[in-house]
Amino acid sequence: MKLLRSFLTGTALLVSFSLTSLPAHASSTDEPIVPIQKSPPPAEPLPPMRPEERGLMIFQQVCSSCHSMERAHYGDMIGLQPSVTALQHWAQQRHAGLESPIASPYPSVAVGKANNGGDYPPDLSHIARTIRGGPDYIRQMLAGYRPVPPGVTLAPNTYYNPIALTHHHKFKMRPPLHEGMITFPDGTKATIPQMASDVTAFLQWADDSHRSTRHFIGTAVLLYFALLGGVLLALWRLLKRTA
């Protein structure tokens, strides 16, 4: 299915991708935007989710309450959340539409700084690419919060994270992830390392959403050139002897 989807988006047949995949996923679509306390019945097994799909849920429920993702629109998440209505619902909750950028919840930089101990929550559009340390850093840092060791004093609104690169481990982002804070429809347990890994996968997807399609097309293109090159090589060798 994934391969088929890559093919559809990648070679971009004129069939709309959203239309073809819409009916298949309609059953699982409305889950991410329901309140956290309403857990789905665990009895019915749902199709497994990709890590970045779980990551989108975490982004919607956790990250986006402080961070923006301004280069992406709400509608761009159609690749991870095939239900247009669910995306529309999410956008409307944030007073936006499908074509609006995922803006910061703060009205101004000053308000954002004031709410986060003086550091403005950075935009997440390309964070997986631009942050020092890349996705590995994000994954470890999100799961890297520790109790304050003796001898270290923290200012108010500051949190101890030995992985974090800024402010000598005295990090301004409050620990975003807590055990079991999200119920994933596919039954994955929401442990902190699991969620850190999922949200990192999502941030990588947000930075470079065509990665898997690109690799698929690239392989096909290389196979094509191997075939064409083989035929041309045979022809060239033939001509070398004859013409």
Partner: peptide, 17 residues
């Protein structure tokens, strides 16, 4: 054509991988 074929294969490696 053969050289272009190799050139385009390198091109594909660069942009896709």
């Amino acid at each position: 054509c053969l050289a272009v074929c190799v050139f385009l294969a390198l091109f594909a490696v660069l942009i896709f991988f």
